[in-house]
């Protein structure tokens, strides 16, 4: 064990509640970046170089500089307050990884779906799976290109979101912005399970 535990890296002894959440989204939307930005410990990445075969299967849509992709998971931890610590599991966005995704999702209490405003339709499959499972989720548009955003209502319609599902915009590279997106998910999870939250409070 370390000698001088710093508040940043070590879990406070008061930490009681571990909450596992998923960070999902289509290929090259910024899931690894998001987990890395928010994590208080060095994140665990499982990245592999995109091969020629992969370049055909996973079209990065002109996202320049994308040379690697997550093949297993991204993992990070974030202590939200004295009682609540988030464990973030980011999983690969491509359809062929779905069987892995199902296993890694075990025990998760909610999911943050990262979306790209230019490729909204690529989030549909993930949202569909979450709705089938009844797992609470929030949608965060990763606005890394600083794109012009249509009004909220139009966006919700484009994603076909139920009124209670939070929709936020964030920049996965900015810690505060990423944290706000994650908090919108946590608040949503708390609001859909109010009884249980009182039990563990």
């Amino acid at each position: 064990m370390g000698s001088e535990p710093s508040d940043e890296v070590y879990l406070a002894p008061t930490v009681r509640t571990a909450v596992k959440v998923l960070v999902l989204g289509p290929f090259a939307v910024g899931k690894s970046t998001f987990v890395g930005t928010l994590s208080e410990i060095p994140p665990l990445y499982t990245e592999e170089t995109i091969t020629r075969t992969g370049a055909v299967a996973d079209d990065p849509h002109g996202i320049s500089g994308k040379t690697t992709t997550t093949v297993a998971l991204d993992f990070g931890r974030r202590t939200l307050n004295d009682r609540l610590v988030l464990y973030m599991f980011g999983t690969p966005g491509q359809r062929r990884f779905l069987s892995l995704w199902e296993d890694l999702a075990y025990g998760s209490l909610g999911a943050l779906v990262l979306a790209d405003i230019a490729r909204i339709e690529e989030s549909f499959e993930i949202i569909g799976v979450l709705e089938e499972r009844g797992l609470p989720y929030a949608v965060a548009i990763n606005d890394f290109r600083n794109a012009e955003m249509p009004p909220d209502e139009e966006l919700r319609e484009a994603f076909d979101l139920l009124p209670e599902v939070p929709l936020v915009t964030c920049d996965a590279r900015e810690r505060d912005s990423a944290a706000r997106a994650m908090i919108s998910l946590v608040e949503h999870v708390l609001s859909v399970c109010p009884q249980q939250s009182q039990e563990s409070a």
Binding site: M1, Y10, I41, L73, F75, L100, D103, L104
Partner: peptide, 21 residues
């Protein structure tokens, strides 16, 4: 240490997922 145990566990969970698959 605690942080590395968390990371090792996450890594193992992913290994187990891939192995089971």
């Amino acid at each position: 240490d605690e942080a590395d145990a968390d990371r090792f566990a996450a890594c193992l969970a992913s290994l187990r997922a891939a192995s089971a698959a």
